[in-house]
Design a protein around this nucleic acid. Structure first.
Lengths: 201, 201
DNA sequence: TATATTGTGTACTGAGCGATACACAAAACC
DNA sequence: GGTTTTGTGTATCGCTCAGTACACAATATA
């Protein structure tokens, strides 16, 4: 054995994550990453191998700490109408709670879709995995809501799931361009859900 | 007077446009631009002032040759249900007609939203202008369709316009990640339109 | 044809990039 | 405590970037 790591890996990865979230992979320089993480580049390269290695770790953290907890709302208690509304409410909170210039505006993976994913197969797979997981989870919740509402008509869940996923992704896309319109898109999602599944609230 | 420009400005701008469309502002280098346009950098700087100047010219061309002609479908003959379906049909054609590795996949402005627009106010304004023009135009067509259908209920045009704009933008976002899913989103839009305004086709 | 004006080609600049070499520091094991 | 193993700091690498200096080419005007 030898010397031990003197930094907390998680907090370093999350500092890098926030920087990538803010500026994207290309625009985040190693100098920026040194400043954000407090590490010298030798330590970064020793621990993560490359800028890309650190980015991949940041994406993994993002999935674990941002994406999955959010998706869990959809599958959690009240799966169906309630969980769908809670999901978009959570998204709405995330967009409106952050200051206009917060580094965490929007979605790291959505930004990635328009950038890295255009020329990097791995990034493309990650983004598409997120998309399909979101759509599938929305679809399950929509089916549960339809069952609870006694809806016995044709299965509209696939197209409704695509519509809701689309509203969520667009809202993330617009979060850094026009926060008010981003919120309007999320409100549109809840309006749709209430329209499909009329209820008390 | 002096020597005359020996190149066709429009074709140069469009070559640059396609490169920016493909790689984005940052990833498109001046060496790439020289190769794509056939111009040496002295000529580029003489004619456009800077890389950004060429980019702005490219965006302007993009709006004039891609965005506006497409929006004109929505306001043109058959405004309402027909024009809405034609619009998404045109978008669908654009996504499916291009080869998997075409430089023109997706939308220059949508890519810009996740990249440049995050740190550049001018780019942000252009992107938001596009968004609002798209939404407004969709809303007009939706109102026309509602009138034609004799729909006298509450005005659902605003939320429907947001939903359709969202589907269009998401489809552009996903065009480079998963073309099949991009098409599925566009199909979802036409399904919605047909659902809102039942008709013969 | 002489001159003024403008476009083009070549060669280069300084700055910033990701990545690395290597000496040194520190902790676990014998 | 000496040795081995591993983390950290400094200094720098080679490269690419956007942008520029300047000579030369070409054409409209006088």
């Amino acid at each position: 054995m030898g010397r031990l790591q003197s930094f907390d890996r998680t907090s370093v990865v999350q500092a890098a994550r926030d920087l990538f979230w803010d500026k994207g992979f290309d625009a985040a320089s190693l100098a920026d990453l040194e400043e954000a993480t407090g590490l010298k580049r030798s330590s970064i390269y020793h621990a993560f191998g490359s800028k890309r290695g650190l980015f991949d770790a940041a994406v993994e953290d993002y999935q674990g700490t941002v994406i999955r907890p959010r998706l869990r709302i959809l599958t959690g208690p009240g799966i169906g109408r309630v969980s769908l509304l809670a999901y978009f409410d959570d998204l709405r909170w995330a967009v409106s709670a952050l200051p206009e210039d917060s580094p965490r505006r929007g979605c790291l993976l959505v930004n990635c879709a328009a950038g890295l994913a255009g020329r990097d197969d791995l990034a493309r797979q990650v983004v598409d995995g997120y998309r399909s997981e979101l759509t599938d989870t929305l679809q399950d919740a929509l089916r549960a809501a339809a069952v609870a509402a006694g809806d016995s008509g044709p299965d509209r869940a696939p197209e409704r799931a695509r519509t809701l996923a689309s509203l969520g992704m667009s809202a993330m896309l617009l979060a850094r361009v026009n926060a008010a319109e981003s919120l309007a898109l999320l409100d549109t999602a809840t309006v749709q859900i209430r329209y499909w599944f009329p209820g008390s609230a």
